[in-house]
Amino acid sequence: MKPKSGANGTAITEFILLGLVESPELWPVAFVLFLLAYLVTVGGNLSILAAILVEPKLNTPMYFFLGNLSVLDVGCISVTVPPMLGRLLSHKHTVPYGACLSQLFFFHLLVGVDCFLLTAMAYDRFLAICRPLTYSIRMSQTVQRILVAVSWACAFTNALTHTVAIYTLHFCGPNVINHFYCDLPQLFQLSCSSTQLNELLLFAVGFIMAGTPMALVIISYAHVAAAVVRIRSVEGRKKAFSTCGSHLTVVTIIYGSGIFNYMRLGSVKLSDKDKAVGIFNTVINPMLNPIIYSLRNPDVHGALWRFLTGRRSVS
């Protein structure tokens, strides 16, 4: 994939990512911190995935989606952090044009699937609490696989649309990106051609691909909240809020940071604050997910403990 040439006949063949810290003295500190964060995130998510696979009690639709979410979290952080660590080690901050667009595509693909899976999990909680008698039929293994396949298809369409749209832009001037990975807002700022259509596309596709799932999540939990209020048992309410609370926490974090990052283009100038949001999207979110689900969910917590200690579940 080659970049389009600009008006003066030249074309950008690579970008320079400044990274999180520009001072070389702080590079070793940044390397150690992000290496630890990467190892903790990968270890935590793979531990949850392993616990779900070996624990018969967790062979349910909710944990099927949670296992998929863990795989996606490992993918999300692997797309951005290892390349950044490699640049810190080599002291080279250049990224080829094609590699930059590839990173953009895979990041939006994995984050997109993440968002759609969270919607599927909300639907699963709605059926489990509001339609318990037909739950096993409406959330069969076939339905689960269809929901995952649709999530991947929608996210692929979204990621491919933005990547192709970026490819139509001309890059002929500055090639320095004040960030640690390639993303839409930063590339928009470097374009020599107008990005108005790209920004409109981002808003339009974002409204459809993110607004619709968010609306479905809100509707699902509105019904869930109404159903939980009618539960007479205190223990029953506590269990319902426990399983739903973890999911709602993750939804709030992911959608909140995503809206802040992509829905304010053209209104403010990008700054170092966007690096903090980038850290939140690529590092904090994937690292928090296993912590949130394991600590707030007694079933996952117990399965994790038995997996790490080598004990078997008593059926």
Rank of each mutant, 00 (worst) to 15 (best):
G256D: 03
V250E: 00
R232C: 10
H247Y: 06
I254C: 02
F241R: 08
I254N: 00
L248R: 01
E235P: 04
R237Y: 12
G256P: 02
E235L: 14
F241T: 00
T249A: 15
R237P: 06
R237C: 14
R237Q: 15
G236Y: 10
S242I: 05
G236L: 14
I253E: 01
A225E: 12
Y255N: 03
H247E: 07
A225H: 12
T252R: 04
K239Y: 12
T249V: 14
K238Q: 13
A240P: 09
F241H: 09
A226P: 03
K238N: 10
I254E: 00
A227F: 14
C244P: 02
I231Y: 06
T249N: 05
A226R: 15
R232H: 13
I231K: 09
G236H: 11
K239T: 11
V228L: 12
S233E: 14
S242F: 12
I253W: 11
K238T: 05
R237V: 08
K238I: 01
G236E: 09
G256Q: 04
H247K: 06
R237E: 11
T249H: 04
V234G: 03
A226K: 15
A225P: 01
S233Y: 08
V251L: 07
H247P: 00
V234W: 02
S246A: 14
L248P: 02
G245Q: 09
C244T: 14
A227E: 15
S257D: 01
S233L: 07
T252H: 01
A226D: 11
S246G: 12
T252Q: 02
V228M: 09
R237D: 06
A240H: 10
R232V: 07
F241M: 07
G245D: 04
K238W: 06
V251A: 06
G256W: 03
G245I: 08
F241A: 04
L248V: 05
T252S: 11
C244A: 12
C244G: 02
S257L: 10
S246P: 00
I253H: 02
K239C: 12
A227Q: 15
R237N: 10
H247A: 09
G256C: 02
E235R: 14
S233F: 07
V251G: 01
G236F: 15
R237W: 13
K239A: 15
S233V: 04
G236P: 09
